[in-house]
Amino acid sequence: MVKNKTDERTMLWQQKIYQAAEGIRHRVMEHTIKNNGGYLSQACSAAEIFATLYLNVLNMEMPEKPLMPGSFLGVPGADNPNHLTGTSFHGVKAPEYDRFFLSPTHYSLVLYAALIEAGRMAAGGLAEFNKDGSVVEMIGADHSPGMEIMTGSLGQGISQAAGIAMGRKLKKEAGRVVVFLSDGECQSGQFWEAVQAMSYHKLDNMLAYVDINGYQCDGKTATVMNIEPFDKRLESFGVRVFRIDGHDVEALAALGKLKPDGRPTFILCDTDPCRGVDILKNRIPKLHYVRFNNEEERNLYRTVFQEMVDITRRGGK
């Protein structure tokens, strides 16, 4: 009887994460239809990763209630004391807490949806997306919800995170630096320079999740610049590497709790960029950004979305 109760508790946390992942896809798809554009395939591939991070892996303070994003208060500088970063959605910074960094900021819409599903951002905040004066930007910056640095060009995010991780290690802070990356940005030279530095300085307080969905702006990652065998290449730099199904929340969560062993840890997540939204397969290999060609196509996506919502209401049956 005790074993059954334990199994039930285990299933509860798993189900909560899967439901949050489904919620992320729904929110991003609804937004894409409403605004005639959005980074939908990124939500399909990375929903379980974001949901697992926010509901299971990241050790961060929880806000007292979901926060509503404020207005943009200007760029950082000595003459602007009002400048704020988006870290309030992660709670206070403290030595014992993790810090999370989104490297590919075209995933910002997915991050915002994840913050809502995790109870950190008010659902109404998504309505501020990409409006003049709003911090809820399409390409998120240091002032956007859930962010504290401007990662700029792809490959810069992990470099900045590595510098912060080194600082935390020198200060002997217990909190980790957790980074989310996309496979396309791992083609850049700056990425590999960062990995080399992370390994050399033994930044075992760094944990990187990489969404390997196989596609980027110009089509298939393998035909733009093949990085496979990605795991073997990373291992040759002296980091700890695991490769898993990126939709398996048990694996995502378990690897997020590994004890450090003197090396940075990379979790390579093989994912499906059409997961849960099969209609996207008609767009392969152009999956980077969804914009509808005409109202007929948009209505088709509306029909598919309504079917998804109806299935969820029926309990997935």
Results as ranks from 00 to 15, higher is better:
residue 44 C to Y: 02
residue 109 L to I: 15
residue 83 H to R: 07
residue 80 N to W: 12
residue 19 Q to F: 04
residue 24 I to A: 07
residue 178 V to G: 02
residue 315 G to P: 09
residue 19 Q to A: 14
residue 232 K to R: 12
residue 57 V to S: 09
residue 288 H to S: 03
residue 298 R to Y: 06
residue 237 F to A: 08
residue 53 L to N: 00
residue 69 P to N: 03
residue 130 N to G: 10
residue 111 L to D: 04
residue 229 P to E: 02
residue 145 P to G: 07
residue 67 L to H: 11
residue 200 Y to I: 15
residue 36 N to K: 10
residue 221 T to E: 03
residue 67 L to P: 05
residue 105 T to W: 12
residue 228 E to W: 00
residue 272 D to G: 03
residue 254 A to D: 07
residue 134 S to P: 09
residue 212 I to R: 09
residue 126 L to P: 01
residue 289 Y to Q: 00
residue 270 D to F: 02
residue 45 S to C: 04
residue 72 F to C: 14
residue 21 A to S: 11
residue 191 F to V: 01
residue 233 R to F: 03
residue 127 A to T: 14
residue 91 G to H: 07
residue 149 I to P: 03
residue 163 G to E: 10
residue 244 I to N: 01
residue 89 F to E: 05
residue 7 D to F: 07
residue 216 Q to F: 00
residue 258 L to C: 14
residue 107 Y to I: 00
residue 259 K to I: 13
residue 169 K to D: 07
residue 100 F to T: 03
residue 122 A to M: 11
residue 311 I to E: 10
residue 75 V to E: 08
residue 264 P to A: 09
residue 309 V to M: 11
residue 111 L to T: 11
residue 181 L to T: 15
residue 301 Y to M: 15
residue 256 G to S: 00
residue 103 S to Q: 05
residue 21 A to Y: 05
residue 140 G to V: 02
residue 123 A to P: 13
residue 84 L to H: 11
residue 271 T to H: 02
residue 107 Y to N: 04
residue 132 D to H: 12
residue 111 L to K: 13
residue 309 V to A: 08
residue 203 L to M: 13
residue 89 F to P: 05
residue 24 I to Q: 08
residue 199 S to V: 13
residue 251 A to H: 09
residue 127 A to Q: 13
residue 215 Y to H: 15
residue 205 N to P: 02
residue 14 Q to W: 06
residue 228 E to P: 01
residue 299 N to S: 12
residue 130 N to C: 10
residue 114 A to K: 04
residue 16 K to C: 01
residue 270 D to Y: 07
residue 126 L to Q: 03
residue 247 H to R: 08
residue 151 T to D: 09
residue 116 I to E: 06
residue 304 V to T: 15
residue 49 I to N: 02
residue 285 P to M: 08
residue 297 E to C: 06
residue 299 N to P: 01
residue 47 A to V: 01
residue 126 L to M: 15
residue 67 L to Y: 06
residue 257 K to I: 02
residue 268 L to I: 09
residue 1 M to W: 13
residue 218 D to L: 09
residue 209 Y to G: 00
residue 6 T to W: 08
residue 292 F to Y: 09
residue 17 I to F: 02
residue 224 V to P: 02
residue 130 N to I: 08
residue 227 I to A: 00
residue 94 A to P: 05
residue 73 L to K: 12
residue 141 A to R: 09
